[in-house]
Every structure is written in C-alpha cells, then in structure tokens.
Amino acid sequence: MKAVVALLLLLCCCPGAAAASVERKSADEAAMVAAYLFNFGRFVHWPDSAFASADAPLQFCLYGETQLDDHLDSLRGKRIRRRTVAVQRLQRGDATTHCHLLFISASERLYLSPLLRAQRGLPVLTVSEIEDFASDGGVIGLLSDNRRLAFEINTGSAADARLSVSSQLLKLAKRVLENREGER
C-alpha cells in the first residue's frame, strides 16, 4: 500500500507540472462559433435586394440542434454596418428563405443536400461545421485546426448566392474553393 501512495506522489509531483505556461486565451467552442458568425456577417456583403428595407435587420438563423442558443443572445441587437442583428432558432423542416446567415448544425448532416438545394439562388450565407460543407456546395465550412477554429470558403457558392466576400476574409480562410454548382 505504501508503495502505491509513494508511486502516486511521484507521479503527481514529477512530470513538469510546475512549468508555468504563458497566458493563453481560450473559449468554449459554442462561444467561438457565435463570434465567428458575427465576424462573417461583418466581412460578407449582401445585395440590397436581400432586405425588405434600408433598415431591415440582418437575420441570423440557427437550423437544427445546436447549443449556440445561449451564446447567440449576446449577438442579438449588435450592429453590423447600419443593420441590427436578429437571431432566430429554426427546427428541421422550418422555412429558411428569410435568413441572411444560415448556420446549419451538425445534426442536419443527413439532410444537407435537400437543404442546400432549397437555398439555391437565394442570397443566403450558409455556414456549417459539417465536414466538407464548402466543397459540397455550402459557402463557409468551419474546421478545427490544432485546437483553433478555422474555416474554408467556397467562392463559387458565394457567387451563386450573390454575396460578395471581402478579400480580408479570403486571406484568413484556411482554404478557398471555387467550384460552382454543377462544376464538380
């Protein structure tokens, strides 16, 4: 028994536990995704025809089962250019045509094709953490990259949706794809 305690003490005390690390910023994944969505809103421009009026809100929609709810509350009412951000939760099957930014939860992986088909030609910025989302016809796909959150952009899909993506955002993207619908 003593040996076990000794072993424990040894294990607990030795392996460089004392090495103080530099201050690192970290955040919950859901909070990060929410902050990314806000930034995508800042760096993507929608055609005026996408809005009912000059001061109509920029509509963010969350589609499917996500745990972003709590985090998105702090985006509500924030301003992007001259519009305020509105946030709406949608469930599978709900209409999405009024959304400007549509975040598609990983729970919708199976329904992705029909869902993207429904957005075709509409000025909707689609974002998702579903694997290969951008190459499958979405606009922005979120990736995890060495404990950081990264993203890839499909400029072809963005053009189909009549969205203009700032060059700054393209520079930050881990990968830029250019395939348009039907060119794959």
């Binding site: 910023k25 970290s26 955040a27 909070a31 990060m32 929410a34 902050a35 985090h71 950081r148």
Partner: peptide, 22 residues
C-alpha cells in the same frame, strides 16, 4: 488560461479571434 465569453470574443479582431483556443 483565460476563458472568454461571446461578448468578449466579438470585441476581438478576426485575426485575434483565430488565435483563441477552443
């Protein structure tokens, strides 16, 4: 390690944001 909430995260520039650990 400093854990940040959404409010604080949206104050960061995109470059800074991309350095935050998940």
């Amino acid at each position: 390690q400093q854990t940040m909430d959404t409010g604080a995260l949206t104050e960061l520039s995109f470059e800074e944001l991309m350095e935050v650990e998940v």
